[in-house]
Amino acid sequence: MSNNYEIAFNTNFVSSLTGASVAQLNAWDKKDLVSPSILKSSGRGSVRLYSFKDIIEVKTVLYLRTNNISIPKIKLAIDYLKNNLDYRAPLSELVLLSNGKDVLCAPQSKYNDISAKWLAANKHGQLVMPFVVPLGAITQSIDAAIKKYNERIEEAESNKNDKDLVSLKDIEGEIFGISSNIYSKRA
């Protein structure tokens, strides 16, 4: 998955976008579950900056937590994947699904060839995730929320500038291609 946006998002924004509280983000960062990839924490009060991909991961972890998967279990899966499969950011790059007993992971690009890529991520523990994480829907919802946020910023900027008023005379040449001489003759 490529980073859809080249802008960074701070903790508060990620919190409002995903529904994860700031405390949760702090905790997940400390536990190395989801860490900001653009600017990491450098101590108390420091700024953290998340990428679009990080936000997808936060939303995914939140989805798993909402479905009562414990943090240790999620971490177990992620650690196994990171250590054994060379996936630096497994959540946003893989399809996570389950047969009710094992966690099965497949790269997004090879989703259709899933039979060749089954992996059980619970060889290190008893990890069961009985559902498919809807990465597509998660990505779309975050994408839409960020677009809406950008539109609001642009609108606010535009409204700020609305205090600057422009007279018709000043723009008739530039915008309407009109020479005022022509119109004064016609009048």
Binding site: S158, N161, V166, S167, I175, F176
Partner: peptide
């Protein structure tokens, strides 16, 4: 005196231009 707020110049008029409407009638 007819004056415009910035939003009209930045959003509305470009949108009208794009739709191919003759701006002289607006003028």
């Amino acid at each position: 005196q007819v004056i415009f707020i910035q939003s009209v110049l930045k959003d509305d008029i470009p949108k009208i231009k794009k739709s191919g409407i003759n701006l002289e009638t607006l003028y």
